[in-house]
């Protein structure tokens, strides 16, 4: 058996737009086709690039990879790992789409298990891999918890992975606008108990959208335009009556 990991670039359309067009269809088809070939793995999209892990019988993986390499939907297909393996890591899926492999334990183990090959990679290959996998990218809360830190979200979450509830949405609206201190979130009482809030924040961390700033600078809430805040309050009142 073998494992290939490659990184490639999504082909930009005429107007310079880089979108992984047709990704859902691609994933659906690949999942089915790969199960037939007993090939398993992960596909991830990030910042205009794909990373794919393919695992299975050597001839199957090589054959599939030779097809994928020629696919016009991507270019500059660069192999970052090509090794033999004794058993596959991602047995449960023909092809799983993952928005973040950085916190995927099985992916991380696969990389660290092949640390020597990864370190031997050239600069370009290393840089491509870093788009997806960079253990130093975010401060982790794992040791310290969120206490006394300021939190911010880089993007809204994938709502198939976290519940699309009013609490989560309120939290995201706040944290995508400006950094807030963890303590102020707890004290507001809007986000449940500390452990409920922590659980949501841990999901955000897994998705790599949470920025944790431990510099302990106190953050003031930004000011709002008065007309806006009047309309906001009226809408809020209206929505309360509407339920």
């Amino acid at each position: 058996m073998k494992c290939i990991i490659y990184v490639s670039k999504v082909v930009a359309s005429g107007d310079g737009l880089v979108v992984p067009t047709g990704l859902s269809q691609l994933v659906r088809k690949s999942r089915r086709a790969n199960i037939e070939r007993s090939v398993t793995g992960i596909l991830s999209y990030r910042q205009g690039h794909y990373l794919q892990v393919l695992q299975g019988e050597s001839n199957e993986v090589d054959h599939l990879f030779s097809i994928i390499k020629e696919d016009r939907r991507h270019e500059q297909v660069t192999v970052v790992l090509d090794v033999s393996i004794s058993r596959p890591d991602f047995l449960d899926w023909g092809m799983r789409l993952s928005e973040s492999v950085n916190r995927d334990t099985r992916f991380v183990n696969l990389i660290s298990g092949n640390a020597a090959s990864i370190e031997a990679l050239g600069k370009i290959e290393q840089r491509l891999l870093k788009i997806f996998y960079n253990p130093e990218r975010f401060n982790s809360s794992q040791l310290k918890g969120y206490q006394d830190s300021n939190l911010m979200l880089l993007a809204w979450p994938d709502f198939t992975l976290v519940k699309q509830s009013p609490t989560v949405i309120e939290l995201c609206a706040k944290l995508t606008k400006a950094p807030h201190s963890y303590n102020s979130l707890i004290n507001s009482g809007h986000f449940g108990t500390q452990s409920q809030l922590d659980r949501i924040l841990e999901l955000f961390e897994k998705m790599e959208i949470l920025v944790i700033d431990n510099s302990a600078v106190q953050i003031d809430s930004p000011k709002v335009n008065r007309v806006e805040s009047v309309f906001f309050s009226k809408m809020k009142k209206f929505l309360k009556r509407a339920v």
Binding site: S24, L97, E99
Partner: peptide, 24 residues
């Protein structure tokens, strides 16, 4: 999985416009 894929596609466009917005 299909919704995650669609989410990735839409987020890529939003990113292109430096827009931070939810896909609901």
């Amino acid at each position: 999985q299909d919704l995650t894929a669609l989410n990735s596609e839409i987020q890529a466009i939003l990113e292109h416009h430096k827009l931070v917005a939810p896909v609901l």
